[in-house]
């Protein structure tokens, strides 16, 4: 290995690297290079030893605490807004009772359908009326099939003693 090959390993002289240490023991040029690195490192540490003024730390702390206070106030505002909304909805319910259809009125809506002439009364279980009012609406739109009576056609002839009766069923047969 050449000195160039050793360069990066020597740059890590602080790390335990027996191979690099052996090379350093043999090569004066690389020893010089490693010493220069160490010198630069010390200069760098020295340069960064200058303390940051306490006012900067205080400014950061003040900003963080202000932000936390602000977010805490925001949370409380949201809680209050939610509570007030809930209270307002409750008051509205108490002042203006609900006027929507109750199960009883749904039942009334059924009656005309049930009373169709000749039709079978439409009955729905009470539980179904209560839990699924949409079924009731569907029943109103689609009336129950009407049972037709047989059709009787009376044909008169020239002879008053002869009368022809034609009786047809629902299908017109």
């Amino acid at each position: 290995m050449t000195c160039k090959d050793w360069e990066e390993r020597i740059a890590l002289a602080a790390e335990d690297d027996p191979g690099a240490e052996r090379h350093l023991a043999e090569c004066a040029a690389c020893r010089e290079k490693a010493a220069a690195w160490q010198r630069d490192l010390n200069w760098l540490k020295e340069a960064h030893r200058e303390p940051i003024a306490p006012a900067h730390y205080a400014a950061v702390r003040a900003r963080v605490l202000a932000e936390l206070e602000h977010s805490r106030r925001r949370v409380w505002r949201q809680i209050w807004a939610a509570a007030l909304s809930a209270a307002a909805i409750l008051i509205l319910f108490l002042l203006f009772p609900r006027t929507a259809q109750t199960p009883a009125t749904v039942g009334r809506a059924f009656r005309p359908v049930a009373a169709l002439p000749g039709g079978a009364p439409v009955e729905r279980p009470a539980a179904a009326r209560k839990s699924r009012p949409t079924l009731a609406r569907r029943a109103i739109r689609k009336p129950a099939p009407v049972q037709h009576e047989p059709l009787v056609v009376k044909l008169l002839t020239d002879d008053p003693n002869v009368i022809i009766y034609w009786i047809a069923d629902r299908k017109g047969e």
Binding site: R9, A11, D40, L41
Partner: peptide, 16 residues
């Protein structure tokens, strides 16, 4: 990390 540190030191040395 070792590789990054050694490369960084070589770069810094070259710059200086």
């Amino acid at each position: 990390v070792r590789s990054q540190i050694s490369q960084a030191r070589v770069k810094m040395k070259g710059f200086l």
